[in-house]
Design a protein around this nucleic acid. Sequence first.
DNA 1: GCAAAGCTGGAGAGCGCTCTCGCAGACGCG
DNA 2: CGCGTCTGCGAGAGCGCTCTCCAGCTTTGC
Lengths: 336, 336
Amino acid sequence: MNTARTRPTLEKVALRAGVSRATVSRVVNGSTTVAPDIRDTVMRAVQELGYVPNHAARSLVTQRTNSMALVLPEPSTRIFSDDQFFPGIIRGVSQELEVAEKQLVLMMASSAASHDRIEQYAMAGHVDGVMVASVHGADPLPATLARMGVPVVCNGRPLGRSTVPYVDVDSVGGAATAVRHLVESGRQRIATIAGPQDMVAGIDRLAGYRTELRGSARRSIVAVGDFTRESGAVAMRQLLEDDPRLDAVFVASDLMAHGALGALRQAGRRVPDDVAVVGFDDIELARYTEPPLTTVRQPIVELGRELARQLLSLAAGDPIEPFMVLPTEMVVRESA
Amino acid sequence: MNTARTRPTLEKVALRAGVSRATVSRVVNGSTTVAPDIRDTVMRAVQELGYVPNHAARSLVTQRTNSMALVLPEPSTRIFSDDQFFPGIIRGVSQELEVAEKQLVLMMASSAASHDRIEQYAMAGHVDGVMVASVHGADPLPATLARMGVPVVCNGRPLGRSTVPYVDVDSVGGAATAVRHLVESGRQRIATIAGPQDMVAGIDRLAGYRTELRGSARRSIVAVGDFTRESGAVAMRQLLEDDPRLDAVFVASDLMAHGALGALRQAGRRVPDDVAVVGFDDIELARYTEPPLTTVRQPIVELGRELARQLLSLAAGDPIEPFMVLPTEMVVRESA
DNA sequence: GCAAAGCTGGAGAGCGCTCTCGCAGACGCG
DNA sequence: CGCGTCTGCGAGAGCGCTCTCCAGCTTTGC
């Protein structure tokens, strides 16, 4: 075990093993055209010197870096709130990258200015591809990168027409299922607390609600929140004022549903007796609310994994499914 | 705007600007010894060609990569639960790295095997330094890396003697303050739900409880959880069985406190009338429990920032405060 | 007015690696 | 036994950049 400072190079290993640099390189990279005994000698030398190939030198010639970037929008209300969305994505992505032996570079897109930074970064050949977990669907970044020749995959259908491949969750279907559940359990006045209408998730969940409701001859009662608890509580109060006789709410996120639950309690409504509540996301907390929340689960970790898988294929030049939609699943607990 | 494929090199820019590679390099790296008019010419050429310096080539010669790794232990019960700890760290770290124009590489230490991976990675000169958010205080990784000459900073005091610099939060003091609050409000039988005793946070918070209690002639009543809600509920039931007359609990994490609150409610105890509850962490949720949770806030984002700051100094060769402890703060709500 | 000093810009080496090419030596076949 | 083929290894170029020289020029001091 040598004390770092000057790390051994290929040259050193070659010298020690009594072969050429090329042969060491072959062994290190697993080429088959090396005689077993020579291979062993080289391996031993590598071991003894504690040789680790220099990444910069390698990627200078191979033009690959073995790392992928994940871009997260920093000023999102979701990102570091406790809705577990981004941690879930990160987890899924990193699981999948680990098996592919790729590294994960995390980039926070804190401002419009950081778009330039990210672009530069990708262009500098720092990463082999980029995953954009864009929340504002109209983000120009993915398209820009794609145009530059950088492999890109988005999380969430982009707004506007765009040819950038994406992976999304079936929000529309999930919302529809939730509403259907309420209809089938006999609820008559079904309201919704929608998410922000500049995010695809917000838009789609509202669309699902509307579509399903339209088929059941009920009228829609809508309030809009921003996915936070506070906004859920505010929206719920609004809704109760708009229609005091409502008997169900489909809430576009569990966090907002948590807020709504509090507001309902304050208003003296019992859940689910007076008002049924269905959330969306199935975060940890949903199992521990009063009462436990019926909700629509979205496979967040799986979403992250798929995102990474798609990007890996794309970067490898393999054909990919350009638009992928993952199914959601209704989880019935006690609130509806 | 050229369509990627072959990205322009220094050479190309030099040719276009009619100067040498060296001069372009000087301009790009902001050297002052370039005449203003030449500088402008070069800048224009850079702009026109959309030149971005190749990272691999640059770091091959400079021996720096401008990125730092953050190692997170994957199989932790904390990491992707909703206690917001890791998201907070990530946020703080990335804020600080952004101003230093460094990139963040996230590494999940999913198994013992991945220690090798991480070591190799750091040795390959992939990053200029490593932050280890180790949960198990006895992790050998930080020391190993340090021995290899890689700049390392830990989050959380390591168990055992170790000279690796760390940044921690004043768990002992925070716990003591919480207990003092309970003593001063007249509580007589103060129990605790401790965290896992193989984690520094678990150990220190229990130590703070014990120390403070010892000074007040009360006896300690201890149950141990693992920082999850479930374990908090289980421990609370255990505690009620051990001493049905207890009138206060200091719980070593808000998540466990949430579980404990549920268990108390089930047991028919009113909070804070019958039993006062104080948590630790001050997660989002703490403001929304029934009743809102009195707790000890730890500055997680600040912790992340400090971690990054320390590492940046260390990597720059500047002297640093080897052991840094950040203050905690009592947040009084309604549960105690 | 001339030498010394200061600036600015260019030439060129070299960071550590991969990969193509070509050359030996082993082997098969007629 | 000679020739062609194949296999295994080494030589060497070059990836794109930085940085140390050094040359040529201007400025300054006496």
